[in-house]
């Protein structure tokens, strides 16, 4: 330390946040050790953000797959309560998210609206958990002596490339319907505005969402989209960005194991961005047949 400089006790030194990724309920840095420096509107560096690699994605898929059995087996009521709890915790950390959104370039008013809407969106989907089955299932009147019914079942592991803009409401809007329906997911957060995705991971971690149900990576879509769409143990992929060529490649890659591909584009602030059909998108319809015995029925001998 040079002699000429005198220490002034004007201001406490701020603890800077280390932004990590979220895999299997843990917060590792990327295995690759790489990082990138997104900038705010004034050109300041937002942080050393993990530039996730395909191996991070692979690890996240393993976590999502192993969480899938337990999560899909939860009762719908329980999933509903967990999503509600997620909303509760987000409510408690409103200030932090508003602050981060502002750092990422949002106005105060818009940031507040984005956080409020994100909380409300979680509450909205929390309520659907134990209702969409009743809307989308059916008993089918077949013309033979069988009881035949169709129910929704979660597809399994869903890879999500979250919206680039609207880094919180967009993120919440694509995650909530997926996990409300009993799927687990690996999400690539907004590349340019990654702060609140990582903070949202902390919200998830302090709620009752089991580890591995939601996994959040930060990084570059161009680098990762190919891996997201070609991984053979991913059942579906949601693409929420605007690059048509990227979407096309995703569709081509997805064909290899018949991943279901969804292109979700919306004004995420609008209530039109939320509906149970988004839950339905990530459901397979399973139809079951069983004989109906007719002994003792009208006019039947046996």
């Amino acid at each position: 330390m040079s002699k000429g400089v005198k220490y002034k006790n004007e201001k406490r030194l701020e603890i800077l946040k280390t932004y990590k990724i979220y895999i299997g309920g843990k917060f590792p840095r990327t295995e690759s050790g790489r990082y990138y420096n997104p900038l705010d509107s004034k050109g300041n560096i937002l942080g050393n953000i993990c530039l996730s690699s395909r191996k991070d994605f692979r690890n996240a898929v393993v976590a999502a797959r192993s969480a899938s059995v337990g999560w899909s087996a939860r009762t719908a009521f329980n999933r509903s309560q967990i999503l509600y709890r997620l909303g509760e915790i987000l409510e408690g950390r409103r200030a932090q998210f508003i602050e981060e959104l502002k750092i990422q370039g949002s106005t105060s008013a818009k940031a507040e609206k984005e956080v409020n809407n994100s909380i409300d969106r979680l509450i909205y989907y929390a309520g659907w958990c134990d209702k969409y089955q009743q809307i989308f299932s059916s008993v089918n009147p077949v013309s033979s002596s069988y009881y035949n019914f169709s129910v929704c079942e979660p597809m399994g592991v869903v890879a999500i490339i979250a919206p680039e803009e609207n880094s919180l409401i967009g993120l919440v809007s694509v995650i909530a319907p997926v996990v409300a329906g009993g799927n687990t997911c690996v999400v690539l957060a907004s590349e340019s505005k990654p702060l609140c995705s990582v903070t949202f991971a902390e919200v998830i971690n302090s709620s009752d969402v089991p580890g591995g149900v939601i996994n959040i990576l930060t990084g570059n879509a161009k680098e990762l989209a190919g891996h997201f769409s070609s991984h053979m143990d991913v059942n579906a992929i949601i693409y929420s960005r605007t690059d048509k060529e990227e979407l096309k490649n995703i569709q081509i890659n997805a064909s290899e194991n018949m991943k279901r591909v969804f292109y979700w584009k919306s004004d995420w602030f609008s209530v039109k961005a939320q509906n149970p059909y988004k839950i339905r998108d990530l459901q397979e319809i399973k139809t079951t047949w069983h004989p109906i015995e007719q002994i003792g029925g009208a006019g039947s001998g046996y």
Binding site: N140, P141, S144, N148, S150, W289
Partner: peptide, 9 residues
């Protein structure tokens, strides 16, 4: 068993 009222796929 198949039936037009029964989803298949």
């Amino acid at each position: 068993k198949f039936d037009p009222a029964s989803p298949f796929g």
